[in-house]
C-alpha cells in the first residue's frame, strides 16, 4: 500500500438555510481554497471525485453542474459517487493505490434546506414494504434508540449528555451551526420530538459543502509541512431491513474499524458521524474507544449535519486536529443509510 496523506481541507460555514448561493457558488471558494492550500497546481491534481445525491437538489444529474466549480478544463479524470463525500475520498484513495495518480481532489455538497430532510430520507428505504408507510429519519432513529434504552445500554440522560457535550465542543468551531452551553436537566425536561428522542437528540438541518486534497507520500512531503497520514480506511454494510438487525450494535462499524486498524495504538480523538445522540454511544462501543478518547471536538453532526458532506467533514475535522497539534492519532467515521446501515472508518496520524 502507498502512504497517502490529507494535505488540505476546507468547508463552508454551516448554516440552516443557504438561500443566496447555489451549489456551484458554495463550492467554488472552498475548492479554490483547498487547491491553494495544497500547493499543487490545479492542472496537476491527478483525480477528482465528488459525493452528492440528486434527491437533496430535487433534480436529476445535479452533480453534473458541480463540475462547473472545479475548473475541468482541460478535461480532468473525474468520478462521482451517489454517497457521502467520505466514500468519494475512498474511491480517490483507491485510485492512488493503483499507482495511476499521485494526488486527488475530493468534494461534496448539499442544500438540505430546500426540502423536508427527514421525509426525503424516507425515500432511502425499501420501496415495497417500508417507504409506502412513510418512516421518516427521526422515527427510524427513535426505533433504534428505544432498542438501546430497553437493552440498558444507555439512558436518556446519557443521550442528553452526548448532545450537551457536542454542542459545547462546537463553541470552539466557528463553522458549526448549533453551539452552546446546555444544562442536561433542562434538556431532559423538554418534551419528546418522537419518543424516545427529544429535539436535542436530533441533528440540525444544515446546508454546506466540504473539499479536501490528498496525495501520495512523495507529493505530500513535497508540498506540505504537516501531512496527516491515512493509516487505514475501510467501509462495510449492514442489512437494510431494520427488523433483521440488532439495532443496538453496529457490526459494520466494528468490522470497518478492525480493517482500518483502529487498535492497537492510542486514539486521541474521534470524529464520529452520529446524527442522533444515541448513535455516538453505539459507534463508540463498536470501535472499542476508551473513555479518555475525546469525541467530536468539532461538535460533530449534532452541531452541523450537512447531508452528503457530514462524513467527509469528520475526516477533515480530525485531520485539522492533528495538523493543529491537538492530537497525534485520530479515528474518523462516516455513516449512510437508515440507523447506521453503512459505515466507513478512517485512521489518521500526524
Amino acid at each position: 500500500m502507498r502512504d497517502v496523506a490529507v494535505i488540505a481541507y476546507a468547508q463552508t460555514p454551516y448554516v440552516r438555510t443557504e438561500r443566496v448561493r447555489n451549489e456551484v457558488e458554495m463550492l467554488m471558494p472552498i475548492i479554490d481554497e483547498v487547491v491553494k492550500k495544497a500547493g499543487i497546481p490545479r492542472q496537476e491534481i491527478g483525480f477528482t471525485c465528488s459525493g452528492s445525491t440528486d434527491y437533496l437538489a430535487g433534480q436529476s444529474f445535479s452533480f453534473v453542474m458541480a463540475v462547473d466549480a472545479v475548473g475541468a478544463w482541460p478535461p480532468i479524470m473525474e468520478s462521482h459517487v451517489e454517497m457521502d463525500g467520505a466514500w468519494a475520498l475512498y474511491e480517490a484513495w483507491i485510485k492512488i493505490q493503483c499507482g495511476e495518480v499521485d494526488s486527488a481532489l475530493i468534494f461534496s455538497f448539499g442544500r438540505s434546506s430546500m426540502g423536508e430532510t427527514a421525509e426525503t430520507m424516507t425515500l432511502q428505504t425499501d420501496p415495497y414494504t417500508m417507504a409506502p408507510l412513510g418512516p421518516d429519519a427521526i422515527s427510524m432513529a427513535a426505533l433504534q434508540a428505544r432498542c438501546g434504552l430497553d437493552a440498558g445500554l444507555f439512558s436518556e440522560r446519557d443521550m442528553a449528555e452526548v448532545a450537551a457535550r457536542n454542542r459545547r465542543n462546537a463553541l470552539t468551531n466557528p463553522e458549526a451551526q448549533l453551539a452552546g452551553e446546555f444544562d442536561v436537566e433542562a434538556l431532559l425536561a423538554a418534551p419528546y420530538r418522537v419518543s424516545p428522542l427529544r429535539d436535542h437528540d436530533c441533528p440540525p438541518v444544515t446546508d454546506g459543502a466540504a473539499a479536501m486534497v490528498i496525495a501520495a507520500a512523495d507529493v505530500a512531503r513535497d508540498v506540505s509541512d504537516k501531512p496527516v497520514w491515512i493509516r487505514g480506511i475501510d467501509h462495510r454494510l449492514d442489512s437494510h431491513q431494520l427488523g433483521s438487525r440488532d439495532l443496538t450494535k453496529s457490526p459494520s462499524t466494528r468490522l470497518a474499524g478492525e480493517r482500518a486498524g483502529v487498535s492497537p495504538g492510542k486514539i486521541d480523538i474521534a470524529e464520529l458521524h452520529a446524527p442522533f445522540s444515541h448513535q455516538e454511544i453505539i459507534l463508540k462501543n463498536a470501535l472499542g474507544l476508551d473513555d479518555d478518547v475525546r469525541i467530536n471536538p468539532s461538535g460533530g453532526a449534532l452541531a452541523a449535519n450537512p447531508i452528503m458532506s457530514a462524513g467527509l467533514a469528520r475526516i477533515g475535522e480530525a485531520s485539522r486536529q492533528i495538523s493543529g497539534g491537538a492530537a497525534s492519532r485520530a479515528v474518523a467515521h462516516a455513516t449512510s443509510g437508515p440507523c447506521l446501515q453503512q459505515n466507513l472508518v478512517c485512521v489518521l496520524e500526524g
Binding site: H80, V81, M83, L237
Partner: peptide, 8 residues
C-alpha cells in the same frame, strides 16, 4: 459485511 460503493 462487505464494502459497497455506488457510482453515478
Amino acid at each position: 459485511g462487505k464494502p459497497m460503493l455506488r457510482v453515478h
